[in-house]
Amino acid sequence: MSDTQPPPSRATPSLQRKFEGRALRSMVLSGLVWFLAILTSVPLLSVLYMLITQGGARLNMEVFTELPPAGFEMDGGFGNALVGTFFMVGIAALIAIPVGIMAAIFLAELGPSSKLATAARFAAKTLTGVPSILAGVFAYALVVITTGTYSAPAGGVALAVLMLPIVVLTAEEAMRMVPKVMKDAAYGMGCTHTQVIWQIVLPTGMPAILTGVMLAIARAAGETAPLLFTALFSNYWLLQEGHLAVMSPTASMAVLIYNFSGMPFDNQLELAWAASLVLVMIVLIVNIVSRIFGKPKF
């Protein structure tokens, strides 16, 4: 009889939100993550602010055309470093992109679940975790010691080691996104693997492959550690007296920034900021372009 009545302790619950206890704690925590997220953007804004104010103030045409100043010299620029960076990233791209895309083709199309592919995927993932300085140590052992000189190819090899796994993994991912039915249609017509890859897989997956390639290039362009003791640095142009001084120390933007950052001269420090601004702009432009490319079309 009494159980037909609701027990007196179970009063009708209020559906109104109560600002105490758990609700209050929820609000505090939400406030905290908002605060942390905004705090996270402070370093980025600060870096960008410094680049624009410090670097932008020094940016002019001369910095692109002149050689780095020594000691107490005024003016000067980082023309040779810009050329050196492009040259070495170019070497790295020439090595890493063909090899990486070929490997990715095997991983995605020819033997996706073979033992070889599993091993290669693991190898590529391991390589992405290798500290960039060790790529430099490797290129030092392989190229600098063998050829007996610091050089642009040594720097290029070091950068290629860093680019290769990014190209392999992103290109494989890109080719896997190509719909299977499309590939089946081509195989069903009697295409060889190579014909399917060239006529269907690569054209369809190209935007996403390009994104990966661009990301790898952007990463390589900003790297310093692998170049420190492979390309070293140079105060001269890569093109000397009509021939390319390939097998000699080569300047790069990143190493220039590093070298100048420790100098007690205002001129050099200003140039370091200007070079940073240029370098960040290059990296960001490559990033943005890769995103525009990367919109898949299917």
């Binding site: 039915v181 499309m182 249609a185 017509m189 009697g190």
Partner: peptide, 16 residues
């Protein structure tokens, strides 16, 4: 073999 024996699939799959 596939050159002589053509195939039409369940899902329409024209090339792009």
């Amino acid at each position: 073999v596939r050159r002589y024996i053509g195939m039409v699939f369940q899902q329409p799959n024209p090339f792009s």
